[in-house]
Amino acid sequence: MLSRIAESLYWIGRYAERAEGTARILDVHVHGMLQDPWVDQEEACRSLLKVMGVTTDATQVSTLQVVSLLGLEQASPSSVVGALAAARENARGARETISTEMWECLNATWLGLPAARIRIEQQGMHAFFGWVRERCSLLNGLTEATMSRDDGWLFLMLGRSIERADMTARLLSTHADAGGSIQSWLSLLRSCGAWETFLRTYRGALTDRHAAEFLLLDRLFPRSAFAALSAAESCLDELEQATGPRAGVATDAHRIIGRARTDLEFRGVDELLSNLSSVLSTVERACSRANTAITGRYFRATAAVTWAVA
């Protein structure tokens, strides 16, 4: 498949997942601010911005500002609105490859963004974040239902999985930064949509150990860091299947992701918990390095050339 198209699909996967993940994180954050009258708003907001990799020069940070920076900032591909627009822009350049339904979904979402702002004013943030989750779920469903399981699919899944691992790591960082209370585990699990599954798995016992194990290592829950990294790994494996090497793995990206995955897998929960921050930043770094490796391996030379007259 065309390198340029592969790149677009990869980024559709990443941006859509980012929009959803960020919306989930913000929803929980806003909810937490409202629920807990004793929380230090300023501190919590700063911590969230830091974890999401956004810098601000404002001396005072309010929840409203956080939502506007991470949720509504059009120019930033890290915000919910920006990521949705970027996903649509990538889809626009790959329109003949994705199904009409996927394109219509992304395009209609993009067209709906202005109306979504009005929704915030009328119905509050929660309605907006709900809408974003719904649109992303719709996209995922349409992708699932209409896309052939060819290389294009693999690139899209690869992007989604890498972003998901990154998002989960960031989400856990907010917990570590907030001092790791039980209350914050609760909201964390909620924001992943994992609360009920978690309760069923551990029969209601919410402890640090269980929560960390679930979000980092669970094999069956798709948003755990382990599951997301494994999914990315299997995409990378399938991409090279035709020419797979006899020893080891074929690509740097695969090596990076594989190491990050085993690093989680073969450490005990206690060890992970005692060193949570550094574990999480290792996962984040692995995602970013894998991104570079994937770009170098599959998306090279897709920039236009400027010609000089000899």
Binding site: L2, S3, R4, A6, R95, E96, F299, T302, A303, V305
Partner: peptide, 21 residues
Amino acid sequence: ELVEGRDLLCAANEVSMRTTA
């Protein structure tokens, strides 16, 4: 395939497109 100019490459009068493979 829908290609842009940057996806195509012309060498020794043969035209090819850059793919992931």
